[in-house]
Design a protein around this nucleic acid. Sequence first.
RNA 1: GGGUGCAUAGCUCAGCGGUAGAGCGCCGCCCUUACAAGGCGGAUGUCGGCGGUUCGAACCCGUCUGCACCCACCA
Length: 875
Amino acid sequence: MTENTQPPADGPRSAPADLPTQYTPADVEERLYERWVERGYFAADAASGKDAYTIVIPPPNVYGSLHIGHAFEHTLIDALTRRKRMQGFETLWQPGMDHAGIATQNAVERQLAAEGTSRHDLGRDAFVERVWRWKAESGGQIQGQMRRLGDGVDWSRDRFTMDEGLSRAVQTIFKRLYDDGLIYRAERIINWCPRCLTAISDIEVAYQEDDGELVSIRYGEGEDSVVVATTRAETMLGDTAVAVHPDDERYAHLVGRTVELPLTGRSIPVVADEHVDPEFGTGAVKVTPAHDPNDFEIGRRHGLPQLTVMDERAVITAPGPFQGLDRLEARSAVVGALRAEGRIVAEKRPYQHSVGHCSRCQTTIEPRLSMQWWVKVGPLAKEAGDAVRDGRVTIHPKEMSSRYFEWVDNLHDWCISRQLWWGHRIPVWYGPGGEVRCVGPEEEPPSGPGWHQDTDVLDTWFSSGLWPFSTLGWPERTASLEKFYPNSVLVTGYDILFFWVARMMMFGLYAMDGAPPFRTIALHGMVRDQFGKKMSRSFGNVINPLEWMDAYGSDAVRFTLARGANPGVDVPVGEDWVQASRNFANKVWNATRFALLNGATVEGPLPGAEELSATDRWVLSRLNATIAEVDAYYDDYQFAKLSDALFHFAWDEVFDWYVELSKTTFAAGGRPAEVSRRVLGEVLDVTLRLLHPVMPFVTEELWTTLTGGESVVVADWPADSGFRDLAAEEEIDAVRQLVTEVRRFRADQGLQPGQRVPAALDLAGTRLGAHEEAVRALLRLQPAGEGFHATATLPVAGATVALDLSGAIDFEAERKRLAKDLAAAEKELAQTTAKLGNESFLAKAPAPVVDKIRVRQDTARADIERIRTQLAGLP
RNA sequence: GGGUGCAUAGCUCAGCGGUAGAGCGCCGCCCUUACAAGGCGGAUGUCGGCGGUUCGAACCCGUCUGCACCCACCA
């Protein structure tokens, strides 16, 4: 099948035999992509005089491979940038990858575990070296996938968050924030993952409803005792108080006194604190300041000691019988011991409550008192919120703004230090005398005895938050930064609105002196399976885009994804739909092939209106209307709508009707055929250009063949000429109606589609006279010869078709159908008449609506008339 | 607990005040020389329930039910 596919010459290919009867993506995709890159179409020139259009890639995690969600996102970005490039913008699609601290470190650790070793065996330097080696491998794989997708990125600008330049950006902004007092170090309760052995930020914690057990424990003795409830009994070892509500009379006598903490022999105070809900449980709370965020706050208010009883692996460190036990073992051991002492007042009961899990490894989070680095989010988030509030940045779809504000207006300082090895090392040195020195990129770090650098690294999102400008050379005032910042649009999923988008907003506004990182945030949904289900490995419904691209081609995958992309809404995809898109690509291929076989051309100017047939004027009118429609949808990020509009225009109007109608014109030859060849060439040229951003490969192959142009990648984006011909549109609609009506009649009569039927076609008095030949051809009607006697007369669209159906049998079906239509038409007439007779309707309805109702009434009358005649015409 | 969104044809979704739509699937006929990855024709919906506003409601308002997601976090 591939042997007759020739690599295209750069000039026009006049011999349409070049094109096989089926589009084979594998034959063209790689070759075309190579060509685009070689010719530098995707390279963005900072010195260009053209207006810039910039989108940065949401950097994929370097350790992974692209999934269908990336394919989706890339399709949208690629479509936007390809269109803008065609519109003459200096277009930059900035590529790159994220080092993905925890995720990558975990992945490499898993590799090491499989090899029977660990990062601790390797040591920090060797481990980091190992990650770098793997990065090279894994990153190359991602680049390969992007090429398969057809991503028009500027490869010469490929960046990685751990690159030297980007690391300098990280260090620069860290230093600046530190000097401005927006980065500080503090000991607080943080979310600690006992498996990853690092702190994580609040938004990296995923809460799930877990089944726990609530036990009630009596602290103290007799009248001075108080009962507390807990799901984490082991933490009682670290209790340093019991808290009750200040107004709670039940416990008023205890406040200020102490109770004995079982198992420990310690006495702990009872404190009064507003935080306690007297209605909940017993109204008394155990307070563990070192292992619970709320208790930490209570402890701080009351000056309670912070007693740490677990280490970083969640193993009990408190001296005594529980020391060395894991938190879960300790939990049952503590409960057992309490029971033995008669301290359990209410036995364990099942209790469903929400529990935090590490979003990277699902391990239950252990809140832990720890010294960490923080970003003071308040002032930064205020700016980030205002930028959207005052319209400097727009969020699409706008309903997503509320989510954004929810986070930005809710000030929570951001824990940025991670106890990992893979990432940007915190640029802070500690001196022998307890000095702390934050070091900028241009400074020499302090050396000498006693000085050492902080061992922690920064949260991955700290560096990706700089992405819109760090990739452009910041902190250097580069030409690229001047040209391509702010980015035009950010295209990303709503799921990382807080993780990434909000951080870029904060950092962008801060680092770039109030200039937001992008003008528009276009949020897309998540890709789901064909039943709308979330994709997950455990569900087995995860899609590998490469498999689909192998089977159906990149364009088919892209078109499917674009066609499902309603703003901010999740996108279901199924293999059937990719198949359908593949069929569409093939249809475009074959329509172009037909056009070439029939001499369609783009040579010379379009013939003037006086030379154009109604069919030509109709299709050109529709073509221009489609351009306008597609433009409007692009400007509103309505990918589903624009794809659907193109699909229907191309297939339903151009391929099914214009091409079919033009067959007659071509057959007749002469000047009308020449005109039609030029019009068909024009329509395909424009349609291919319109389709190119979503289906880059097949359109490139066809467009260069059809036009002989250099590449559709750098062709002009079609402009609406403003040409509209509503009369022609109505005329062709009438032809389509006529043909469809007769076809239906034929089908109902069980006539074979190929069977020629003698027919008298009376188009006198209609505007359809010019279409007689075409109608006859489409309907396979032959001239009514001698001995013709009509057995069915179908008056449609003002014309009359008389068919000689001497051979046909049963008219009952047709009679039935017509009766049904008649009833419907009569009902419509009654309704519209009633409406028009309704005074309040006439008084209040706008004129266009009334006109519309009148038209419907007229149509109903005409329908009734037509159907009656048709019924009478049946034998 | 706070918030957002969604319930429309078998499936997945558009439509968001004036004749219920698309893709896929389904049924029937056809290899009509661009395409069977195709052509032609067809069937299918008390637009979640109940109220209200309106001349008119899938669309606006209220309410109920069911789903999804986000945030906060419950000792």
